[in-house]
């Protein structure tokens, strides 16, 4: 397998993209001289290097045989990462006592063997209580237990 569907090619795209973006963004920073480097000197160097590596990887992907990019499993990614985003977005409104178990449920739904049953739900309640006790009461992490939507 060679061409635009190889791992090499796409890794190269990522590197080249990041490298070029770094160089473009660093243009607003003072370069300084080699003896007195400004804030933009080192990032521009690194960006150029990364872009070059990216191009090399893209070329290698196009010309040499390599493995194709394996299937990306969308569902678990959306659910697990979505759970963290949900938690970040609603923590203030729902509070830890509601936002945490909900986020955990969302994340848990990513498993193929996920189903709602009394025992795991009980475990979830226990785990939430454990987190509230350890992190809020014990370690004093300043998270609201009850969110603003519930008058907290």
């Amino acid at each position: 397998m060679q061409g635009t569907r190889t791992k090499d090619f796409w890794a190269g795209v990522v590197y080249a993209g990041f490298g070029l973006a770094t160089m473009v963004l660093a243009r607003d920073l003072p370069m300084g001289s080699a003896a007195r480097m400004g804030a933009g000197y080192f990032p521009t160097m690194l960006g150029g290097l990364l872009a070059a590596i990216g191009l090399a990887a893209m070329l290698r992907g196009l010309r040499n045989p390599g493995e194709a990019v394996p299937r990306i499993h969308i569902r678990p990614a959306v659910l697990v990462i979505g759970a963290t985003f949900f938690f970040a977005a609603t923590l203030g409104y729902l509070g830890l006592a509601v936002a945490l178990p909900t986020a955990i449920l969302i994340a848990a739904a990513a498993s193929r063997s996920f189903r709602l049953a009394p025992a795991p739900l009980l475990g979830l309640l226990g785990f939430t209580a454990f987190c509230v006790l350890v992190f809020l009461r014990g370690l004093g992490v300043p998270m609201p237990m009850i969110g603003t939507w519930f008058g907290g």
Binding site: T84, L100, I104, A107, S111, G123
Partner: peptide
């Protein structure tokens, strides 16, 4: 059962 707890610990 394990990984949702890991997610929770990571977030907190």
């Amino acid at each position: 059962y394990l990984y949702p707890c890991i997610v929770a610990f990571c977030m907190i």
